[in-house]
């Protein structure tokens, strides 16, 4: 069965200020959607709210995963249901090694008695780390502690490849990456691409989309999706910027501050 993630009329506030003002999006497994837009238009809020970030309050709307409203679930239950968020600023956790953490995370979504076999785990970890050109010592280092920006992003993709969720939301995974790291991160995501994987890629640079070709492109302004299209939309944005959209829609200030 192909899973579907539906975002319906999503309204989100942070500290009493409305950031998302009715977002609608439908993503099916097998599809890659890119959400683009200038800074301050609500893109990251969308990613964080879907996963359940504690600072964001959903005031209206639903996020349905195969018909079930994930907004009623705890954060860990959303992960068990098949959602994954690759974060822009991953936390550093001392005292727990990357590999111990990954194994706990994999087992957390499995039934008791069905834990991943240690040899299988190591094999899969080695393979994915090789694929992402990560040093072997990253497995035994504490989770993200002292990692460079690029190492953290690679580690997010490693977790994604190990956990194999139904849907991955990538929140500005390309920010702060040099071109080589960008290629490796994209390679990881392309490896997952297939009928059992859907993705929502949030970015404000078109350059990531040179490496990961999206099926659909959406533009956010003022806390809403204001335009959707295919990959040609991203190319036009690359060439012409956002002004033509603002003009077309009569928007002067695209940020959520604008009323």
């Amino acid at each position: 069965m192909t899973s579907v993630l539906e975002i319906k009329d999503l309204h989100v506030e942070i500290e009493g200020k409305e950031i998302l003002k009715g977002v609608n999006l439908t993503i099916k497994q097998g599809e890659i959607h890119a959400v683009m837009g200038p800074n301050g238009t609500g893109k990251s809020t969308l990613a964080q709210a879907i996963m359940g970030h504690p600072s964001y309050e959903v005031t209206k709307g639903e996020v349905l995963l195969d018909g079930e409203n994930v907004l009623e679930l705890e954060v860990d239950e959303r992960a068990h249901a098949g959602l994954f968020l690759a974060m822009q600023y991953p936390s550093e956790i001392s005292g727990v090694t990357n590999s111990d953490f990954l194994r706990s995370a994999i087992n957390a979504s499995r039934e008791e008695g069905d834990e991943i076999n240690l040899m299988q785990f190591i094999k899969k970890l080695d393979k994915n780390m090789d694929y992402l050109e990560m040093d072997q010592d990253m497995a035994t280092r504490y989770l993200n502690e002292g990692f460079s920006g690029g190492e953290k992003k690679r580690n997010e993709i490693l977790q994604l490849m190990m956990l194999e969720p139904k849907f991955a939301i990538l929140d500005e995974i390309d920010s702060g990456l040099d071109i080589d790291a960008l290629k490796i991160v994209s390679k990881g995501i392309n490896e997952l691409r297939g009928p059992e994987f859907g993705s929502l890629i949030i970015t404000h640079y078109q350059r990531l989309l040179n490496y990961i070709e999206p099926d659909f492109v959406h533009v956010m302004m003022q806390g809403k999706v204001v335009k959707s299209g295919g990959k040609e939309l991203a190319e036009r944005l690359e060439n012409e910027g956002y002004d033509w959209i603002k003009e077309e829609l009569g928007i002067e200030d695209e940020t959520v501050e604008a009323e």
């Binding site: 996963m51 705890e74 954060v75 860990d76 992960a79 968020l85 936390s91 706990s104 957390a108």
Partner: peptide, 17 residues
Amino acid sequence: DEIQLFYLMSRGLSRQE
């Protein structure tokens, strides 16, 4: 740190864990 908890829980770990 609630953000650290969010990060770990987003990978499937329970709040207690």
